[in-house]
């Protein structure tokens, strides 16, 4: 049953990934001719033609596409023009940096948001609830690039406490993670608070009170478990956003992740690498979605696939 379900999902996802790759293939080729970037300005026409032939760019575009599809079948994703090695290797090399950043950011936001949201929902209208509401709204609505730049100005340039960009020490992680967390944390606090308030007014909470259960166990045992489903949906959505959308944060902080790689290779017309980064993120998003579906089953016994 369950494997059948995953198989069906994989099948459907494959179709959409192929559609996506087709679209990306043609769109990237609209950005211009790579030989203009990779050869010296004064190179001869012969040299340009040789470069095009070498990289298959002299063929008509539909032939290039067929060739690309053929290679895909044998798991050949093309060569990086810039680095002169397998494009997928370049993409896979950059991916762990993004994945670590995204995983830490999302896990921390979920944990913090569940605690803050649940406490806010336990006493709606209290001072804590109002402060949490304000902070989460600010977090959800402030642009991340602005926070990132202000962060660099204050903590790196001004106070000199944190490095401006790059990787290496633990300190390098602090600003990218904090900036990445703001939006998910803000949104999740609001979702947790809302679903907790409705869960707390559910009839089975009355039963728990009638049983004489402790208040904290009612909130964290009965209400929270039931309000987690919508939270997981939103968190999953935000995770996929972080996996492919850390572009701005990675660029600002010089983080060698897949977002930065994508931007760089688009600018450098390194077509094979653009396509590979998109393939890698698409597969990662597929895996995240499957994981969310499986979490649903684990959390709610009424759901079966």
């Amino acid at each position: 049953m369950m494997f059948g379900y995953i198989g069906r999902r994989a099948y459907h996802s494959t179709i959409s990934v192929i559609g996506l790759l087709t679209l990306v293939f043609f769109l990237t080729r609209l950005t211009g001719d790579p030989s203009a970037l990779y050869l010296p300005l004064d190179s001869s026409i012969e040299a340009r033609e040789a470069f095009a032939r070498l990289n298959g760019l002299d063929q008509p575009i539909h032939m290039q596409f067929l060739h690309y599809l053929q290679n895909l079948l044998s798991l050949d994703f093309g060569q990086s023009l810039r680095q002169n090695r397998s494009a997928i290797e370049v993409a896979l090399e950059a991916f762990p940096a993004t994945l670590k950043l995204a995983a830490i950011a999302i896990i921390l936001s979920v944990i913090l948001a569940v605690i803050v949201g649940a406490l806010a929902a336990a006493r709606p209208g209290s001072l804590f609830d109002r402060v949490a509401g304000l902070v989460s709204l600010a977090g959800a609505s402030t642009p991340d690039f602005w926070i990132a730049i202000v962060g660099i100005l204050v903590f790196a340039v001004g106070l000199g406490m944190l490095p401006t960009s790059g990787t290496g020490t633990t300190l390098h992680w602090i600003m990218p993670i904090t900036v990445l967390m703001l939006r998910p944390f803000g949104l999740l606090v609001q979702v947790v608070r809302g679903t907790m308030i409705s869960a707390l007014s559910a009839p089975y909470i009355k039963t728990a009170h009638a049983k004489g259960m402790k208040r904290r166990r009612i909130i964290f045992g009965h209400a929270l478990r039931n309000s987690l489903l919508p939270v997981i949906t939103v968190a999953g959505d935000l995770t996929t956003g972080l996996i492919n959308g850390a572009v701005v944060v990675e660029t600002i902080f010089g983080w060698p992740g897949i977002g930065k790689l994508m931007i760089d290779s688009i600018i450098q017309r390194d077509f094979a690498v653009v396509q590979s980064t998109i393939l890698v993120t698409a597969i990662a998003i597929f895996i995240v979605n499957i994981a969310i579906d499986l979490l649903y089953v684990a959390l709610d016994p009424r759901i079966r696939y």
Binding site: Y204, A210, G212, M213, R225, N226, D300, P301
Partner: peptide, 20 residues
């Protein structure tokens, strides 16, 4: 509550927690 005074309700499906 639950030890010396107990209560049952109208709609047992809603009054039982669906996930336990």
């Amino acid at each position: 509550n639950g030890r010396r005074i107990a209560m049952i309700f109208q709609d047992p499906l809603a009054y039982l927690n669906p996930v336990y």
